[in-house]
Amino acid sequence: MNGVPLVAYLLVGLFMFTIGVVGVVIRRNPIVIFMCIELMLNAANLTFLAFARYMPSSNVAPTGQAQAVMSGQMMVIFVMAVAAAEVAVGLGIIMAIYRLRQNIDIDEMNLLRG
C-alpha cells in the first residue's frame, strides 16, 4: 500500500457508503436492500482500517499510538460479527414473510398505515 494516500481509501469508503444509501432508498427487494446495508457497514469497516493504518499521521499522543491502532482494528472484528448476526435475523424475517405470502416485494408491505 505504498504510495496510496489515506484520502484514496476514505473516498472509496465514502463511495461505497453512498452506493449503499442510494440502494436502500431506490431498490424494492428486501434482500437487495439488505445487501446495500451490508455495503454501508463494510464502507465503515474500510474507513476504520484506513484510519487505523494511517493513524501515526493523526493527532494522537505518541504513547497512545498502539492503542489507537488496535481499537480501530478491533472495531472491524466486532462489526463483522454483528453484521453476521444481523444477516441471520434478517434472512429469518424475510423467510417468515415469504412463507406467509409467497412474495417479498416491499411495495406490497402496506398493511400498516394510518
Partner: peptide
Amino acid sequence: LLGSFASGFLLYGVALLYGATGS
C-alpha cells in the same frame, strides 16, 4: 431494514470520529 440502515449511519459516524480523534 430501517434499524440496520440507521446503525450503518451510526457506524460510519463512529468511523469518522475515530479517524479524527484516534480513539
